[in-house]
Design a protein around this nucleic acid. Sequence first.
DNA 1: GCGATGCTTCGGTTACGGTCGAAGTATGAA
DNA 2: TTCATACTTCGACCGTAACCGAAGCATCGC
Lengths: 242, 242
Amino acid sequence: MKEGPDIAQIGSLIGDPARANMLTALTGGKALTATELAGTAGITLQTASSHLSKLEAGGLIAQRKQGRHRYFTLADDDVGLMIEGLMGFAAYRGFTRHRTGPKDPALRKARVCYNHLAGDYGVRMLDSLVAEEVIAGVGDKLQLTPSGEGKMTALGIDLPALVRSRRPVCRACLDWSERRSHLSGSLGQALLTLFLDKGWARREPDSRAVRFTGTGEKEFARLFPLPAPSAVERHDQHTVEA
Amino acid sequence: MKEGPDIAQIGSLIGDPARANMLTALTGGKALTATELAGTAGITLQTASSHLSKLEAGGLIAQRKQGRHRYFTLADDDVGLMIEGLMGFAAYRGFTRHRTGPKDPALRKARVCYNHLAGDYGVRMLDSLVAEEVIAGVGDKLQLTPSGEGKMTALGIDLPALVRSRRPVCRACLDWSERRSHLSGSLGQALLTLFLDKGWARREPDSRAVRFTGTGEKEFARLFPLPAPSAVERHDQHTVEA
DNA sequence: GCGATGCTTCGGTTACGGTCGAAGTATGAA
DNA sequence: TTCATACTTCGACCGTAACCGAAGCATCGC
């Protein structure tokens, strides 16, 4: 009856608590089976199956058969960004389920956001990359600078492969704990993979939390030095003095 | 039962078609009465009243009594950004209600996004501001540059007043039709107000569309020249050649 | 082949929420 | 005061969808 896109369908997909729990779980980035998702949502397998088919019909998740298991993931980066965006809004508005659990500090420090690094460390990494002029851009469209391409390649990142992936290489994703942007896109994913592969960090078993090892902390600080408290830091109060 | 913010509550608020219609209508930026909102949603006044109180309890809208009317608006910029973000996601995924109506081209060209300019013109304006180094920044955190402050003041914008408003001055908002960022925040609002006050553009009666006058077009082109097709334009395919 | 596991489909129950009619409150106009 | 408009509250109806038990497929291991 009205012009424009229909947000109600998406809203109602996310609006059910069971489905919201599943989506939140999938934001962890790992592919999960129907049984696991039923567990995290606290419902039986039959009910979960029904929810999952609805989410798939809505294009929010994708499934992949492997043996007798069905692994579910978020459909793509866009879904992850949207969910993370909603979580940011919800967190800021005080829509929380469990008044900051015990794992909360670890989650705020460093966590997985679908396939890249988020939390304090994620935000610091992007701040540093911008300060070092590895990345430039405006809005959610970011770009590698020519000098940045060199630095990333030196780190062992296969840039041509990232470009070939046909997904945006750099992208800004709003962090729900920091309310600042961190790096998403295929480069964001590649960097997280790098940390994990090098053994600098590892994922907590049943959580989105990422724990850095001792050398991991050092390497992170070396690769992504914090800029002196500058333009990037003070974001809300602007330079315009009244 | 799980950590993190609760997206289900917000989802279910938006998930009802009637409420979604109301929110979409309010994205137009004008304050609307309960009766008007009931009309756009296609429901009776009683039902609308119930929906509106739910939306208000959820913090998505605010009301202001004036005489015997109650005017409703979105609660703040954050809500507008979230809704617009969802609309972008929905549009990209093909969740549309009415297969691109007749007003659609006008909407894509220039429209109101809560309180600032969106659509092709909104995106072009931000592109130009960045190319002219009036605005710089990364992610959704943008900043006026010192030279930019001068230019905006010269345009007749009261920067100290914007700062006093305690809202972010510059902010990136994802455009659902262009899938690029445009300028939000109090500066974005001030610029749209400027266009309307100067008579360069006016709002269509019952739509979010904004129509520029002849001189408005010229002034817009003069104030916000398009950068030569450069880094800002080609955003998805990166400079890295395979 | 057989049983076990992982998941889907079917059927029936239940409950929540959207809906409207009718009545009630508040503001303004005459 | 009286009537009209703008809106809310109450109560009842009804449809949808979430939910689970049971049965049905598919795949793996043996």
